Simulated scan of single mutants.
Amino acid sequence: MKIFNSIRSKVKIAAAVAMTTAAIGVASMSVYAGQWVQFGDNWYYYQDDGTFATGEQWIDSYMYGFDETGRMRANETYNGYSYGADGKCYEFNDATTGEKTIYGENFYMPANWQPSEEEKAALRELFGRDF
């Protein structure tokens, strides 16, 4: 009986060591593909291919902008795109096609389109600001 208890204790210890080692291995992985990561005050998006996103990228139905190092653009305008504090592209105008993107939604309007007061009110209600 003593031998059986000794073997059982060794098996329990070995199992505990294996589970602890596995848990430490999983916990040490700091970045997973397709996830947002923060370094200091800057945010980056780690892509499925193991690289950080750069340029303009659609993530979770919103367009974000990233510089050449992968830093998410926030509170800035770059290359015709305007980015909010959350990094989402909230407005883009393409004068050649009349396309206007507002908070990830695409609209097509003539380049010289001037909204009526009613249309301005509807846009204000939808997006919380004047156009």
Rank of each mutant, 00 (worst) to 15 (best):
I3H: 12
I3Y: 13
I3N: 13
F4N: 09
N5G: 07
N5W: 09
I7S: 09
I7T: 15
I7P: 01
I7N: 08
R8H: 07
K10R: 15
K12H: 02
I13E: 14
I13A: 06
I13L: 14
A14G: 05
A14P: 03
A14K: 03
A15G: 07
A16S: 15
A18S: 15
M19F: 12
T20F: 09
T21F: 10
A23P: 01
G25Q: 13
G25E: 12
S28L: 14
M29Y: 10
M29F: 14
M29H: 13
M29A: 15
M29N: 13
S30F: 08
V31R: 10
V31K: 09
Y32N: 13
Y32C: 07
G34K: 06
V37A: 05
F39C: 11
G40N: 09
D41Q: 13
N42Y: 04
Y44I: 05
Y45A: 06
Y46N: 00
Y46D: 00
Y46C: 01
Q47K: 14
Q47R: 07
Q47V: 05
D48V: 05
D49L: 01
D49W: 05
G50T: 07
T51H: 12
T51S: 15
A53Y: 01
T54L: 08
G55A: 11
E56C: 10
E56I: 15
E56K: 14
E56S: 11
E56H: 11
Q57P: 01
Q57R: 15
W58I: 14
I59R: 04
I59F: 04
D60H: 15
S61V: 08
S61L: 09
Y62E: 08
Y64P: 05
G65C: 11
G65H: 01
E68W: 02
E68I: 00
G70H: 08
R71S: 07
R73S: 05
E76W: 09
T77N: 13
T77C: 13
Y78N: 14
S82W: 02
S82L: 02
G84V: 03
G84E: 06
G84P: 02
G84T: 00
A85M: 11
D86S: 12
D86Y: 00
D86C: 02
G87F: 04
G87D: 00
K88D: 05
K88T: 09
C89M: 01
Y90P: 03
Y90G: 01
E91Y: 00
E91S: 13
E91F: 02
N93D: 08
D94L: 02
A95G: 03
A95Q: 05
A95D: 08
T96G: 04
K100L: 14
